[in-house]
Design a protein around this nucleic acid. Structure first.
Length: 604
RNA sequence: GACUCUGUAGCUCAACUGGAUAGAGCACCUCACUACGGAUGAGGAGGUUGAGGGUUCGAAUCCUUCCAGGGUCGCCA
């Protein structure tokens, strides 16, 4: 192995290759090196990396222990960088020479882009998230959605993908018409400016007002002897909303003007919320622009015989070959449904971005069936070569009182929750008294990073596939497995590094620093796994893997920090090593948090 | 009813995708330290991984049957 290889090739890869080579030399087994399972040695055993021998016995024709012994002896004998081995059951534990780790710490691991794949080294991916309706403010469910989509985008970027962040804004339909009707009838000309309300909350208030009026009317009709179902159809305000939608579709000038005005208020409000959340988008799609495209494609599909038109004029797709049933694509009255606009949006996107390799939809798991159907329909239309579309499905955020439903009013508002987080951060930070040298603006910045970080981390550390419980009173903590704990350790590390720099004590290179000892190795191993964590998180669209890795790494650093003086090390080489570890830790954790969309404060 | 996801410590979550004695945090108990930033560290207690059966060197993970919960099931989005 030449020096260049030694510097750049991952240690696990080297071990795999070496195992494959000796497997061939000793047992005559021809095995691809990536078929060999190498993992971190558990801390109760001696060694650094472990080769699992059970699967190799098929080739060696020996017991797992004997296989491990033979391979271990050959591998250690055949290299200068493996210095020892032991076999426990069928696990071959290999000890890597500490100098190799020291080289790695000062070399590969020290590069600014360590763990990060070069931009554009992987195909272009579009990630959709947020995608709100424009009739009410964002709530807790949107927070999980936005944080998830944004973080997955960052992770995919780190894995080398060119990522396009988008959302589809559901700006038309009966929901916004309801707010419009309520405002026309009851608004008396007031505006967000006149009431000082945030635009999305303002419009949301009229949506609630509509619902209240609607219920009252239905109750009155039922009182008069009408069946409930009929009453819900005939309530005057409901009819007004339907009329409003019809006029909108017909392009009625006044209706469209009102629609634009009210959506504009909502967008101003959303803008603020997105800014507070720290998420952004590269391109926005509006349902009002895409639903007609979808209708066109559906009608063309009928011409091409992909879809069928029924007697009543409605259009359907038959997905029974795919294990689903028939789905409606266009109503008998010619109006579009949810599916129709999604077809249009998807096709538009592939046209807008010809190089697009994949689309990821961040949408709750209650829509799994919908996306399954959508992807099959796109396939029928020729827009889904295997795996071009992926539904990043996530579980509901539940409240202690039960599942939250916006209609029942049991919602945790996104703006309120974030504001509350900032307040808690402010209270705790003020108690600690570490921010006295910062000015007011800088302090606000810290509260924001810590409060928002705590919230994001709480929502992101859980596997997206799982539903999660959110207790507003008890959920968010600043100690334990939380963002503030991780940020706090970052700040401690940075503080030391600043001091070291001031005293010109920064770690130089592997030649001037001590080799890592047993106490350092856990931290080294965790740092070493970063690239694997990123690629796994990217492959499974799971920020939770990054979050938990950040926590493990931090816990290890925190423990090390407690037991060892870094600046006060006994010898200069020892201090250089500790400083180097501290530097690697702060760099790694900052990158990890960047992937979660969480910023690091320098003080807190 | 059909399909689908989920079920791990009192609570909230992990477990490198089939690997070694299932790990953390919170809460509870004990301890450490002028502390390079205490939003700390070390330890204890807490488990039949919903239940049964199967597959194999090896199962929380795969198959199967139950049980419990969430979600979805043609003109809502």
């Amino acid at each position: 192995m030449n020096l260049l290889e030694r510097m750049t090739e991952r240690i696990d890869t080297r071990i795999q290759k070496l195992t494959a080579r000796y497997l061939d030399e000793i047992f005559g087994a021809d095995l691809a090196s990536d078929e060999i399972s190498v993992q971190k040695t558990r801390k109760e055993f001696a060694g650094d990396r472990t080769v699992v021998c059970f699967p190799l016995t098929r080739h060696s024709k020996l017991a797992p222990e004997a296989t491990g012994e033979a391979l271990g002896a050959a591998m250690v004998g055949g290299t200068d960088w493996l210095v020892g081995f032991n076999v426990v059951k069928g696990f071959l534990n290999l000890e890597v020479e500490r100098g190799v780790w020291a080289d790695w710490l000062a070399g590969d691991a020290a590069k600014a882009d360590y763990g990060i794949a070069p931009a554009g080294s992987a195909p272009q991916i579009m990630v959709e998230y947020s995608s709100p309706n424009t009739n009410k403010p964002l709530h807790l469910g949107h927070l999980r959605n936005n944080f998830l989509g944004h973080s997955v985008s960052r992770i995919l970027e780190a894995a080398g993908h060119d990522v396009v962040k988008v959302q589809i804004i559901n700006d038309r339909g009966i929901h916004i018409c309801k707010s419009m009707v309520a405002w026309s009838v009851m608004g008396g000309g007031e505006t967000p400016q006149s009431t000082g309300e945030k635009g999305d909350h303002f419009v949301g208030r009229y949506y609630v007002a509509f619902d209240k009026a609607f219920r009252a009317e239905v109750a009155e009709l039922v009182e008069g002897g009408m069946p409930k179902e009929e009453a819900e159809k005939l309530a005057p305000i409901q009819i007004a909303a339907q009329d409003s939608l019809k006029r909108w579709e017909a392009g009625d000038k006044d209706t469209v003007a009102l629609w634009k005005k009210m959506n504009g208020w909502v967008y101003e409000g959303f803008e603020q919320t997105y800014k507070a959340m720290g998420v952004d988008f590269d391109k926005l799609y509006y349902e009002s622009d895409t639903y007609l495209v979808g209708r066109d494609k559906v009608l063309k599909g009928v011409e091409n015989g992909v879809f069928t038109r029924r007697q009543d004029g409605s259009i359907w797709v038959d997905l029974s070959d795919n294990g689903l049933d028939e789905k409606l694509l266009l109503r008998s009255n010619g109006t579009t449904v949810y599916m129709t606009q999604d077809i249009g949006t998807a096709i538009l996107r592939f046209e807008d971005y010809p190089a697009l390799d994949r689309q990821v939809y961040t949408v709750g798991n209650e829509q799994e069936y919908h996306f399954k159907a959508l992807f099959f329909v796109l396939k029928k239309l020729g827009f889904d070569a295997a795996g071009k579309n992926h539904h990043l499905s996530y579980g509901m955020v539940e409240l202690p009182e039960g599942k939250m439903k916006s209609r029942e009013g049991k919602v945790v508002d996104a703006d309120d929750l974030m504001a509350e987080m900032f307040d808690v951060a402010e209270r705790i930070a003020t108690e600690s008294g570490k921010l006295s040298e910062l000015d007011a603006q800088e302090r606000q910045d810290v509260f924001h990073k810590v409060g928002l970080g705590a919230l994001k981390y709480f929502l992101l550390k859980v596997d997206p596939a799982k539903g999660m419980l959110f207790d507003p009173k008890a959920s968010i903590d600043f100690i334990g497995n939380t963002a503030p704990f991780i940020q706090f350790n970052y700040v401690r590390g940075r503080s030391i590094l600043r001091k070291a720099e001031a005293e010109k004590l920064a770690a130089a290179d592997s030649a001037t620093c001590a080799q890592p000892g047993d106490d350092e190795m856990e931290l080294v191993h965790l740092l070493y796994t970063m690239p694997d964590v990123i690629s796994e998180a990217a492959a499974s669209y799971n920020p939770g893997l990054v979050a938990n890795w950040c926590y493990d790494l931090t816990k290890s650093f925190s423990s090390y920090y407690q037991e060892h003086q870094i600046l006060g090390a006994d010898t200069a080489p020892e201090r250089a090593l500790r400083l180097m570890l501290t530097a690697r830790f702060t760099e790694a954790i900052k990158k990890g948090f960047h992937m979660l969309g969480i910023e690091m404060p320098e003080r807190m």
